[in-house]
Nucleic acid binder design. Structure first.
Length: 825
DNA sequence: CTAGGGTTAG
């Protein structure tokens, strides 16, 4: 196609002589180009065109370009006749380059033009915006505004406004533009509506919208998407109703927006009706409409229709591939997603950042360290530019999803102008990888930047970290902020708060919050079920599940995970089995490794080690380390050395890097005094360069979290704590306490064992609490490992002696001491 | 010759 056009172009436009093209008019590069395309430079070419016709031909050629290379070719040929530097031609070139994603060529073209008119400025700004280089777009806008030879007109406004609303500091520019009063123009008004929505002033946008003398479909779309992007999905839908009432027909843009609204408000029925509308009006031929359909179905967990839509698509763009890959990734089918990724590769579609974000999440789900490495390598080779904030944030997220928080942090540090999302992503990255303390550290760093305003995403990022650390006070401070910002009804924020209160032992607060929020989606239900389970209240969790079904809320895989966990903690084996069955048969949810792990844990805790083993053997997917780890943990509880050996042999084969597994097996041997086994495991762990995770306990006092390690003498109050601990020890011994040294897993003398026990970190933390709080104050301790049996006994006695309520949360569950009220506050 | 409103994610 291109070759023919070039020949045509050469025939019509270049100066010709009777024997063919006169080479003296061609530059070296265009000779080369012609040669490259196999165009003979001799031959019979027609002549005789006037100026106007030539330009019409250029137009045709522009339209025929299908890739950046075509434009380059055209550009080179235009350069020959010296036309490329005219503002008119350059504008077209800038647009073409930017359509094909090659902004740097747009910029080169732009820079070479001396007399720039408002058209060319406009095109350059659009080129940046189109390719998401918001920083450069805004820079370009301010440069234009600083010049005297060009003034923005009402054609410029939509572009300029769009550029401004892409960046928070674009806000200062929009005032300048507003002064000129072109609000009546449909395009300008629609852009204003859009911009106001971007800055969070949906009401102001609505005022403009309402006062418009006439509205085209674009304006309606602008208002609908504006409300939607502000999180007001309900208003968006009511605008749609108004639009239909006024007899304005939905177009492809409306449909695409509404589909994502449906996904957000969980309205599958409306989504399907829109799908029918799409079919009836043939709108599925717009790529983005089909894309929107795919993501709508994916978000609502209806994967059945997805392959149908995808396979019947006429054209597929990068978004189509990304959407379909994300659809499977988000619904826990990482292997299907990877297969699609391969198919995409075969179709020669280049993956972009978002593809890799999904891919990272898939790889993280599959827990395959080799895949993690290859994706990491891929990302590194791509060297995604860090100048654009969205790309930088995506890379941080990607590394966090892969569990490589160090790399995430490096990218984070390299971004010079971090926005709120950069910070939120970094905090979430740490929190989701269990590094709550790092998450808190980053949050404190964020607070030092006064120009940054934490938003809903920040709260959703930091609250789980506080919940993990048991930092109730800090969490409550965030609750205060949330109330100030009227965000307490936001489902995500309030779910995090429910989780926080639940995890910090304040069940009544969690419940009252739960009944305040909208319970239309499974999200808050999952939180309330999970936190009751954590407290060993499995029956209550099941009651909430029943209530959830009565209210017509569809449970998802997280719901069942929380339920199975709850059953496991409360020893409700039959109910757990029932849940596992219902999940598959009624809700067609395919159990993930996590579900299997819960089941094994449940059987194991109940002492049904054989059942657990057989259950693993019957699994349709390959059990991973967490499944075998659950069995090993159960063997430790029930003292079954043989089964423990069996489990650990599978375990070390699958994942030889987790120190915790070695500790478990060595503990199991130690319990039976089989020190040779202990030594064997320990030297194995040492050979593989693994160390036992140090145990720590933390306590929150006066808004500070104090962390104690086993026998750590660096604490300023260490002497005082030791003295008090000695006194308490003597007292509880007189009450009949005999240290249970079977929990000491080193092969040392008996009195040394007692000494080790007495130095367990939670005891230091508890005594610290007793010393530093008024009498009768409840003491809450958080511990990263499990509470050992001896500590359990001692804590019970200390609680009695000091008349203190003591709550210890370990890596597994809550331990309540002296709960005379029998309630959980 | 230009422009607004759309789909993936954070």
């Amino acid at each position: 196609m291109c070759i023919i056009l070039i020949i045509y172009f050469v025939c019509r436009l270049l100066p010709v002589c009777k024997d063919g093209i006169s080479l003296k008019y061609l530059s070296r590069s265009s000779c080369y180009l012609l040669h490259y395309y196999g165009v003979s430079c001799t031959g019979n070419l027609s002549n005789g065109n006037d100026e106007r016709n030539r330009e019409i031909d250029v137009e045709g050629l522009f339209r025929a370009c299908t890739k950046s290379e075509d434009v380059k070719c055209l550009h080179a040929l235009l350069a020959v006749s010296g036309k490329a530097k005219s503002s008119f031609v350059a504008t077209r070139l800038i647009n073409m380059y930017s359509y094909f994603g090659n902004v740097s060529l747009s910029q080169d073209t732009f820079d070479q033009v001396r007399d720039k008119d408002s058209y060319i400025w406009n095109s350059m700004i659009s080129a940046y915006v189109r390719n998401r280089q918001s920083n450069k777009a805004v820079k370009c806008v301010s440069e234009m505004l600083s010049r005297t030879d060009v003034r923005p007109d009402f054609h410029n406004f939509p572009t300029v406004l769009k550029a401004c609303s892409a960046l928070p500091d674009g806000a200062s520019l929009h005032c300048r533009i507003l002064k000129s009063g072109f609000e009546w123009d449909v395009f300008v008004a629609a852009s204003l509506v859009h911009m106001y929505c971007r800055f969070g002033f949906a009401d102001r946008a609505y005022t403009i919208f309402k006062n418009m003398p006439s509205r085209d479909t674009g304006c309606w779309n602008s208002m609908i998407s504006g409300y939607f992007q502000n999180g007001n999905a309900k208003e968006a839908l009511s605008i749609l109703d108004d639009m239909i009432l006024e007899g304005v027909k939905m177009d492809s843009m409306t449909v695409a927006t509404i589909l994502s609204v449906c996904a957000q408000v969980n309205d599958l029925l409306r989504g399907m009706l829109i799908h029918l509308f799409v079919i009836k009006h043939g709108l599925e031929f717009h790529v983005f409409v089909s894309n929107a359909l795919i993501s709508m179905y994916a978000k609502l967990g209806e994967l059945k229709c997805v392959p149908n839509i995808f396979d019947h698509m006429y054209v597929r763009d990068i978004v189509s591939w990304n959407s379909v890959i994300a659809a499977y990734e988000q619904n826990n089918h990482p292997y299907v997603a990877i297969k699609l990724f391969h198919r995409m590769h075969l179709n020669k579609v280049q993956p972009d950042l978002l593809t890799l974000v999904s891919l990272s999440s898939c790889v993280a789900q599959m827990k395959d360290p080799l895949c993690v490495k290859s994706v990491h390598g891929f990302i590194t080779r791509k060297c995604w530019i860090t100048e654009d904030i969205v790309i930088g944030n995506g890379v941080i997220d990607m590394y966090a999803k892969l569990g490589i928080t160090d790399s995430a942090r490096k990218v984070f540090e390299r971004i010079s102008r971090k926005d709120v999302i950069s910070w939120n992503t970094m905090i979430t990255g740490y929190a989701q990888n269990g590094l709550a303390a790092d998450a808190v550290e980053v949050y404190h760093m964020m607070k030092e930047h006064e120009d940054l305003k934490p938003n809903q995403g920040t709260w959703v990022a930091i609250l789980p970290a506080y919940a993990h650390l048991g930092a109730l006070r800090d969490g409550m401070k965030i609750h205060g902020q949330v109330l100030k910002e009227n965000l307490e009804l936001d489902v995500f924020v309030s779910t995090c708060l429910i989780d926080l209160y639940g995890k910090c032992g304040r069940l009544s607060e969690a419940i009252s919050l739960f009944y305040q929020v909208s319970r239309e989606t499974s999200v808050p239900w999952n939180a309330i079920i999970s936190c009751h389970g954590l407290h060993g209240l499995g029956d209550t969790s099941l009651k909430y599940f029943e209530e959830m079904l009565n209210e017509g809320v569809k449970p998802d895989q997280v719901t069942f995970l929380s339920l199975l966990n709850a059953c496991s903690h409360s020893g409700l084996v039959d109910q757990g089995k029932w849940c596992f069955q219902v999940m598959q048969q009624e809700y067609e949810i395919i159990p993930t490794l996590k579900h299997y792990g819960c089941m094994v844990d449940m059987f194991g805790r109940a002492g049904l080690l054989e059942t657990a083993y057989n259950f693993i053997e019957s699994m349709p997917i390959r059990p991973d380390a967490s499944v075998w780890g659950a069995l090993l943990g159960a063997c430790r509880i029930h003292g079954n050395v043989e089964m423990g050996r069996k489990a650990s042999s599978h375990l070390f084969e699958l994942d030889s890097q987790d120190a915790g597994h070695y500790v478990l097996l060595s503990n199991l041997y130690a319990n039976f005094g089989r020190w040779e086994g202990v030594n064997e495991v320990r030297s194995l762990a040492r050979d593989r360069g693994l160390w036992k995770t140090p145990g720590w306990s933390s306590i929150e006092l006066n808004s500070r979290v104090e962390v104690f390690y086993s026998g750590n003498q660096s604490h300023p109050q260490y002497g005082e704590i030791l003295k008090e601990l000695g006194m308490l020890n003597a007292k509880i011994k007189s009450l009949g306490y005999i240290p249970d040294t079977s929990f000491v897993l080193q092969d040392v003398e008996a009195d040394e064992k007692e000494n080790i026990l007495a130095n367990h970190s939670e005891r230091l933390a508890i005594v610290f609490g007793i010393l530093n709080t008024p009498p009768k104050t409840c003491i809450r301790i958080y511990k990263n490992l499990r509470v050992c049996g001896d500590c359990h006994n001692v804590t019970k006695l200390i609680s009695k002696l000091t008349e203190r309520e003591i709550i210890v949360r370990d890596s597994n569950r809550f331990h309540h001491f002296n709960c005379s009220c029998g309630d959980y506050w």
